[in-house]
Amino acid sequence: MPPPAELHAQLVALLPRLRRFARSLTRNVHDADDLVQLAIERALARAAQLQADAPLAGWMYGIVRNAWLDEVRARERRQRLLTPDVGDSLAGRVSGPTDAEQLAVQEALASLPEEQRSAVALVLIEGLSYKEAAYALGVPVGTLTSRLARGRGALQRLLGEPGPQA
């Protein structure tokens, strides 16, 4: 593992990207920030497991995503009174995208199954290599690429092509 000070500095530098990835999972900024916080604490508690040559970003994305899967399972167990959709729409008003194009893209992303959404977010948005993304998601590269292909196909159908030129 890297020396603690270096690890902390790397984590701080990763925060904006981790928040963005978490947002693609939770769809609202408050849950996303809670998720990132939880993931950082888990990561620091497990820092000894991080090998010096392991990619920190891939490792962190994986922890964020696993924390989210834990949370989803816990929510299902609790059978929340407030359904996710109600919560999400409330949160969406708080700090969702204001730009119509951003909104369209984020809604399209949100409609994908979680597995495809994670693959798309890590490779197409976060810019991870297939190998890094597969490592983060704990799946073989072939599984990642097939999720990615299905996710892309769905996005193209949802968003239409070509997209508006910025």
């Binding site: 963005r20 995208p97 893209v105 984020q106 996005l155 070509p162 997209g163």
Partner: peptide, 17 residues
């Protein structure tokens, strides 16, 4: 088409950073 989709996703999500 694939390039456009990739660029579009990145553009839409860049402000979050």
């Amino acid at each position: 088409a694939q390039r456009a989709l990739r660029a579009r996703l990145q553009r839409a999500c860049a402000p979050l950073l």
